[in-house]
């Protein structure tokens, strides 16, 4: 029965496609999530996700690839956020709140006014089961660029997250790093759009890193754990989605969240159990 549970969906081409696309998206998101959680940019991720809506609508209207429109608006929103923050006395969270809801609302409005055959529901909640060949290609391109950039610049990006002042002190260009990270953030969201949808993409972008952070003190291990949990959630999520007839993105995110809760409770060093134990033993030491 378990075997049937696993093999039955594989008889459908769309399921096989959904499985490997989701797995790929899971890996890309997990890698970036480590940087995003450490940098404290979760809210920024959510903002970029919402800000892509007008881009998607415009792209469909103009007949250009959705990924291009989404990327331009997503990245544009981050630049707008930076600009508003520099030139007003507002705190960053307020600026982000204002800018991304503005983009999002504009997108919703456009989607009803510009004649196109896009399904708003699919943009909002993803539709990996019905993903077209064309969209797969765009997803793959955005994802591979993200992975390549991170692979080549991973040390600098990590330094930038940890200690941007030191990066400056040794003569590195932190403005460039800032935009590099925003760029891969926007690209990752484009990658995950078809799988998780705008509303849930932030979960794929934050939760794996958050879970891994609770489980490890070393970045390399954190990265491995994030990729592992994300991959597991993506694959199982697609299966769940098939068997329960539930939205794929939602299934993936529910699994990611369950793994997070498990880590929160059982993590060997930072878990709730361990913490309450060490409180009782009142040993403040390490290991």
């Amino acid at each position: 029965m378990l075997l049937d549970w696993i093999t039955e969906p594989l008889e459908y081409g769309f399921m096989v496609k959904a499985l490997w696309v989701s797995a790929f998206v899971g890996i890309v998101c997990a890698v970036l999530s480590c940087y995003i959680t450490l940098k404290g940019w979760s809210l920024m991720g959510d903002a970029v996700a919402h800000a892509v809506v007008p881009g998607v609508v415009v792209a469909y209207a103009l007949g250009i690839p959705f990924a291009v429109g989404a990327f331009l608006f997503g990245f544009g929103a981050t630049v707008a956020i930076g600009y508003v923050k520099e030139n007003t006395r507002l705190k960053e969270d307020a600026v982000i709140g204002v800018v991304f809801t503005g983009f999002f609302a504009f997108g919703l409005m456009l989607s009803t006014k510009i004649p196109s055959n896009i399904d708003l529901f699919h943009i909002l909640f993803g539709n990996v089961l019905g993903i077209s060949q064309e969209d797969i290609i765009q997803t793959l391109i955005a994802g591979f660029i993200t992975l390549l950039v991170i692979l080549l610049r991973r040390k600098d990006l990590l330094l930038f997250c940890f200690d941007p002042n030191h990066a400056k002190a040794i003569g590195l260009n932190t403005t460039f790093m800032y935009y590099t990270l925003l760029l891969v953030l926007a690209l990752t969201i484009v990658t995950a759009l078809q799988t998780a949808g705008i509303i849930l993409v932030v979960a794929m972008l934050v939760t794996p890193g958050a879970t891994a952070y609770l489980l490890s003190d070393r970045f390399d291990r954190m990265l491995a754990i994030a990729v592992g949990t994300s991959l597991l959630s993506s694959i199982l999520g697609v299966y769940l989605s098939y068997h329960l007839d539930a939205p794929t993105g939602a299934c993936i995110v529910v699994l990611l969240t369950l793994l997070f809760v498990a880590a929160m409770i059982f993590a060997p060093k930072y878990g709730l159990l361990r913490r309450s134990c060490s409180k009782i033993e009142s040993d403040g030491g390490y290991q």
Partner: peptide, 12 residues
């Protein structure tokens, strides 16, 4: 932050 002492000094 998940970095070791060695990692930090290497950043120098």
């Amino acid at each position: 932050f998940p970095v070791s002492v060695w990692d930090v000094v290497m950043m120098g």
